[in-house]
Simulated assay, not measured.
Amino acid sequence: MHSAQLLAILAFGAATVSAATCTKAITVTEPTPTISCDVVDADITIDSDLAGDVVINGPKQIKGDFIVNNASGLISLTSTTINAISGTFQLQSLELLSTLEMASLKTVGEIKMIKLPQLSSLNFGTEGVTKMTSISR
C-alpha cells in the first residue's frame, strides 16, 4: 500500500515539474515553435519576418503581452492551448492575416487589432473571450 502511495506522489511531482513557468521573453522565429511551459511570465512576440501559417501551442497562460506587429506575410495565427493573456494581445499591420483561431482563449487584459485588412475569420473558441479590460481597433 505504501508503494502505491509513493508512486502516486512521484507521478504528481513529475506532472508538477512539466508545468514549468518561463520567465524570459520569447520571440517566435519559426512557424510551429516548441514552447515547453504552461505559463509564460513574460511577453511572447512573433518575429515580423514570419510568413504563412503560425501555430503556437504549449503555453496556457501568458502573463505579459502577446505581440504580433508588422508580420506582413503572416496568413494565419492559431493556438489551441492559450486560454489567458494578462497583458495586451496586439495585432498590428498584418496585411495578409486572414485567419485568427484562438480556440481556448477566454481572458485577455486588452485587445488591440489595428490594420488587419484581410481578417475574415476570427475564432475565440466556443464561448469566446468572456473577460477583457478593453479593446482597440
Rank of each mutant, 00 (worst) to 15 (best):
M1Y: 03
H2P: 06
S3E: 06
S3T: 08
Q5E: 04
Q5N: 04
L6S: 11
L6P: 11
I9K: 12
F12V: 12
G13N: 14
V17E: 08
S18K: 13
S18E: 12
S18L: 11
A19R: 07
T21K: 07
I26E: 09
T27G: 05
V28Q: 13
T29V: 14
T29Y: 15
P31K: 11
P31I: 15
T32V: 14
T32P: 07
P33F: 13
P33Q: 14
I35K: 02
C37R: 05
D38C: 03
V40K: 11
V40W: 10
D41K: 09
D41Q: 11
A42Y: 15
A42E: 11
A42N: 13
A42T: 14
I46W: 15
D47Y: 14
D47E: 15
S48Y: 13
A51K: 14
G52T: 15
G52R: 12
G52H: 13
D53E: 15
V54A: 06
I56N: 01
I56Q: 00
I56F: 05
N57T: 04
N57Y: 09
P59M: 07
I62D: 06
G64T: 13
I67L: 13
V68C: 07
V68H: 06
V68N: 06
N69I: 15
N69A: 13
L74V: 07
I75R: 10
I75V: 08
I75S: 11
T78E: 05
T80S: 06
T80K: 10
T81S: 07
I82V: 04
I85E: 04
S86K: 10
T88F: 15
T88L: 12
F89S: 05
F89N: 06
L91S: 09
L91C: 11
L91A: 08
Q92M: 12
Q92R: 15
L94H: 08
E95M: 12
L97S: 02
S98T: 01
S98F: 01
S98H: 01
T99V: 01
L100N: 00
E101A: 04
M102A: 04
A103H: 05
L105D: 00
K106P: 03
K106L: 01
V108I: 05
G109A: 04
E110R: 09
I111D: 06
M113E: 09
L116E: 04
P117M: 05
S120C: 02
S121K: 03
L122E: 01
N123D: 07
F124T: 03
G125I: 03
T126F: 00
E127R: 02
E127M: 00
E127V: 01
V129M: 01
T130M: 03
K131S: 05
K131C: 02
I135E: 09
I135N: 07
S136A: 13
R137W: 15
R137G: 15
